[in-house]
Design a protein around this nucleic acid. Structure first.
Lengths: 185, 185
DNA sequence: ACGGTTTATGCAACTAGTTGCAGAACCAGG
DNA sequence: CCTGGTTCTGCAACTAGTTGCATAAACCGT
């Protein structure tokens, strides 16, 4: 039940059309909640039906025509309710750990196959990390510390710390691999 | 397409019945790939139909009767194939970040509601962290460093590091909250 | 031997997310 | 103008995961 609230948040920050939302979900919000355009359009329909958002009246709604939405008071209230409601952390779902465990269970041949992909992941996470660090430099210079900025920065820090975890852990994993006896690789 | 492979791994480590698998998915493997008993039974049926596993012939299969499975060579091969195949990291889906961003967009009332749940999450992650640390003490004493042990330990380290990230970040977040001007809380 | 709890397996329906495709408007070049 | 690519919206079908319930054997105290 998170996607509708992700969309409400995005629309609250700035009224947008479906495609604009899709683009914004490819970065920014999408860093921690991704969505495809089909999900977004479907959800926009539901949210409109429920009276949480409405199409901006400025243009007639026709196919192939931009249709922008804004959040209604009811939508804002629902978002506030959801944000304040207590939620349990969901268990991880991480295939890399699974594959490592599978490799251990299989033995020699299993271990050999996975090393290259670990390297690839390390490279990807390094890239993501430096992307986040650029954003930090650009969007959060020393002076910017309104309550809003502080919260946004906090979220970005989480992204940076997570990517830092990944690069460290993957580096450590590859070192371990290097030390394994040859017949296990 | 990860659940069947998680099950194959578990069965490779030790042939088990559906319920035994369910219990094992509540800990150990479940720390990074959770599954309910219904998912498991369904998947066991599919895996058997595909010839990847088979029921141990020791007991007649009747309702309310334990039925244990073991991995067949075809299943082992499939697991090795999957493990070695390159996979992209999936984008995070983290509601806590989403809720924080929503709180920022809503303003004062939004920020107020979420603080208690951050504290609760911090407590939960602290608990998980110490659980992992106990497992490390118990299962990985200094001497244990066969290739298998090293890989298992590596996975556990990832869990420990992730929980460490969460406790640190949540602590930091709560400190930031404390510094926000009163009308924003 | 009886009735209640626990163990073990499973079906059906639902929710969330993904993939593939298609159709209308809009824009640029001949 | 018309044609062919791009933008924008959307439907339909599929896969993965969740929730609620059913059913039967086993186990256990009386």
């Amino acid at each position: 039940m998170s996607l509708p609230h992700a969309i409400l948040t995005a629309l609250l920050e700035k009224p947008s059309s479906g495609l604009e939302l899709t683009r914004r979900f490819d970065k920014s919000i999408g860093y921690f909640w991704s969505a495809t355009h089909q999900q977004i359009y479907r959800e926009l329909g539901k949210l409109e039906a429920e009276g949480h958002i409405r199409a901006l009246p400025s243009q007639q709604p026709a196919r192939g025509q931009k249709k922008s939405y804004e959040v209604l008071p009811a939508g804002r209230a629902e978002l506030a309710r959801w944000t304040a409601a207590s939620q349990d952390p969901k268990p991880y779902r991480e295939t890399l750990f699974l594959r490592l465990r599978a490799a251990a269970a299989i033995g020699t041949e299993g271990v050999a196959g996975i090393e290259a992909d670990l390297r690839r992941h390390l490279e990807l996470h390094r890239r993501q990390l430096s992307e986040y660090e650029e954003i930090e430099q650009r969007d959060f210079p020393p002076g910017k510390d309104s309550p809003q900025d502080r919260l946004q920065h906090l979220i970005l820090r989480a992204g940076i710390d997570l990517e830092t975890f990944w690069t460290r852990w993957l580096t450590h994993a590859l070192e371990e691999f290097a030390e394994l006896p040859d017949q296990s690789r």
